[in-house]
Simulated scan of single mutants.
Amino acid sequence: MKHLLLLALLLGASFCPSSATAQEQTSYAYIGIEPEIVTNYLGQSATRLGYVRVMVELMVEDVDQLELVEHHMPLLRSTAIEIFGQQPEEKVKSLTGREDIRRAILAALQDHMQKETGAKVIKNVIFTKYLHNA
C-alpha cells in the first residue's frame, strides 16, 4: 500500500503542469562584469574624491542570451562605471543610496540592451562585493 501511494505521488508530481512550466520558465543565468569595478565618486568637497570597489553580477533572462550579453559587455561595464562616477558620497555610503545606484544601473543596462538587441535581456543586477573608502 505504501508503495502504491508513493508511486501515485511521484506520477502525479511528474504530470503536474505547473511544476513543468515553472522549470521551463526559470532558465536564468548569471554573468559577472569582470574585472571588478574600481572607480572614483564625488567626495564632499570638489578637491576630494572617494573610490568604490564593486563586483557586479548580471542576471540574464535566458541562458541562450549569455553570448549576447558577453558581446555587449564593454558597453555594459562602461555604463556601470559611469553611473558610479556620477554619484555623491552620501549615496555611495548609504544602504538606500546603494539600492538606488543598483536600480539606476539595472535601468541603464536594460535600456542599452533594448536599443542594441530589441530585448531588455538583463533581469537583475547584483552587487556581490561592495567596498568604499571611509
Rank of each mutant, 00 (worst) to 15 (best):
1 M>T: 14
1 M>L: 14
4 L>W: 10
4 L>M: 10
4 L>D: 03
7 L>D: 00
8 A>F: 08
9 L>V: 05
12 G>Q: 09
12 G>W: 13
13 A>R: 07
19 S>I: 15
19 S>E: 12
21 T>L: 15
23 Q>L: 10
23 Q>I: 07
26 T>Y: 12
29 A>L: 05
29 A>V: 05
31 I>E: 12
32 G>L: 01
32 G>P: 01
33 I>N: 04
38 V>R: 13
38 V>A: 14
41 Y>H: 11
42 L>Q: 07
42 L>T: 10
48 R>C: 02
52 V>M: 03
52 V>A: 13
55 M>L: 13
55 M>N: 15
56 V>Q: 03
57 E>L: 12
57 E>V: 11
58 L>M: 13
58 L>R: 10
60 V>S: 08
68 L>S: 15
71 H>W: 08
74 P>F: 08
78 S>F: 11
80 A>M: 06
83 I>E: 09
84 F>Y: 12
84 F>T: 04
91 K>S: 07
95 L>E: 07
96 T>M: 12
97 G>Q: 04
99 E>W: 03
99 E>V: 06
101 I>W: 05
105 I>F: 05
108 A>V: 11
109 L>E: 08
112 H>N: 15
114 Q>V: 02
117 T>G: 04
118 G>H: 06
120 K>L: 14
123 K>Y: 07
124 N>F: 06
125 V>K: 05
125 V>R: 06
126 I>R: 11
127 F>C: 06
131 L>R: 04
